[in-house]
Simulated assay, not measured.
Amino acid sequence: MTDIINYATHDWMAATPSIDSLSISELTLPGTHNAGSDWRASYPVFGPPRHWLACQHDSFHAQLHHGARVLDIRLAYEPKAEGVGRFRAHHGGHRNSRTLGSLITDVENFLKQNPDEFIVLDFHSLDGNDFDYDYFNKMMIHLLGHRLIPSRNLSAGLGQLKHISKEQRVFAAARSHWQLDRHVFIDYINHEWSGSDLTGSAELKQFIGNVLKSPPGAWKPWSLSATCYTALGGPVDIHKELNEWFDPDNSDWAMKCNVINVDFIEESNIVSFCRAVNQTKAHQRPVDRLLA
């Protein structure tokens, strides 16, 4: 039976040294969809109700503590705001109180407490015709540069990355732009999603099954959107379905994934499933090398 008890979510990577041979692209990683839109953030009074916008229960730090290792970030640009407050989290254009500053603070505090966990910041959208890529680039390097893993090390295993640096634990991914330092930012992470803003669980299951018949390769990170949304309720808690679909005792779906991007990450066993299949991947890796 899958081990879902004998580990802590906050340091599950460090507590599983057998996976050190795997790279970020080879691992199966738990991710949080729309990580910057959570129930504890503040939202404008005049706008859609919170339950239509919040995809997570709590802050970036809480998501990392609960085991998420890929944060799906969508930022809008506010030129009149101060400092890193110019970059504000949003869901479908509806902004909230989370900013690039709160993201960097939460990541730094988490890594001080858990120095051998690895995080991917998936800047899935940087929005606004006047988005200041130059300032964004400078602030990322100035405030988080000591944590950022150079893009040239993307294919290195976790053990190699630990050997290279005691502090570099973060990959930052964003769509290519001439003002973003490509020595720092890795390529845009493609999201496999249903293509519909309104997706029920049956439709989602069929979609995931089709994607995983021929999943993207392990040469670069990719993300599977395993989320549902309804017009009345907004983001839906589908933890029962996720637990059924991705349990490695029931299917090979988790083995075929890189990032499993979910809402309300605390509700399902997705972190434990990822940990379990990563141990299997690491065990199989030497065999794969012999056969190559």
Rank of each mutant, 00 (worst) to 15 (best):
S201G: 03
I186R: 01
S18N: 04
I24Q: 06
D288F: 08
A292N: 14
A276E: 15
R152S: 15
V236H: 04
H146R: 13
W245H: 00
E267R: 03
A172F: 07
Q279K: 05
K138W: 12
H94S: 12
A35P: 10
F171R: 00
I270R: 00
R169N: 10
L212G: 02
T105F: 08
L27D: 12
D106H: 03
L158H: 05
E26S: 03
W12P: 00
N278F: 08
W253F: 14
V287R: 04
W253M: 11
D38K: 01
L121T: 05
M1F: 10
D263Y: 00
I186T: 03
V84N: 07
V70T: 06
R289N: 15
G234W: 10
E266M: 06
T16E: 12
A231P: 01
L111G: 00
H94Y: 13
E82W: 05
M255P: 01
E244A: 07
W219Q: 13
D187Y: 06
N137M: 06
S201Y: 10
H191V: 10
N114L: 02
A8G: 10
K281W: 12
T9Y: 09
S225P: 05
P150R: 05
R147K: 13
L242T: 08
L111K: 00
S223Q: 10
H239W: 14
H90A: 06
H91C: 02
S42F: 12
F60T: 06
H10E: 15
Q168Y: 09
K281P: 08
P30N: 07
S21V: 15
S201F: 11
S214D: 15
W39T: 13
E266F: 05
I141N: 03
W12K: 00
L161S: 04
T28N: 00
R95A: 14
N243P: 03
D106E: 11
M255N: 10
F246D: 09
W193A: 02
H239D: 15
D58Y: 04
M140G: 00
V259T: 07
S165N: 07
S225Y: 08
S155E: 13
P150D: 14
Q284V: 13
V211H: 01
D127T: 06
H65D: 11
W193Y: 11
G36Y: 12
H191F: 11
N109E: 15
H66D: 11
F110H: 04
N261D: 14
G157A: 06
N153G: 03
N129E: 14
G31R: 04
H61G: 10
P30S: 07
F264Y: 14
W219F: 09
G159W: 09
F123I: 06
L121W: 03
R169I: 14
H65E: 14
A254V: 09
